[in-house]
Amino acid sequence: MTLTLLEIVALGLLGAAVLLSLLRLILGPTAPDRVVAADTLAVITTSGLVILAALLGSPLYLDVALIYGTLAFVGVVAIARTIEGNG
């Protein structure tokens, strides 16, 4: 499908959000900061997968987004448990 100007703007904003989150992931400075950045990135990725489904016009990617969101949540809880255990 051809994109309208607003849609291109939206994609740009979303791309900038991903880059900033990645920056926080790289900069740290502590492990918890990276966990928070990774959590945020995971949620952005979930909605990103939905947008990918729309761009490709294929609802198959919606299932991918659903599974990805669920697994990301489980991962975050697992990491949180690890942090808690070390404390």
Partner: peptide, 19 residues
């Protein structure tokens, strides 16, 4: 499209907050 732009903008604000 407006919903998409607003959604992307809020996501960007969140990322700016993260920084």
């Amino acid at each position: 499209d407006l919903f998409l732009v607003v959604g992307a903008a809020f996501t960007l604000f969140g990322a700016i907050g993260l920084i």
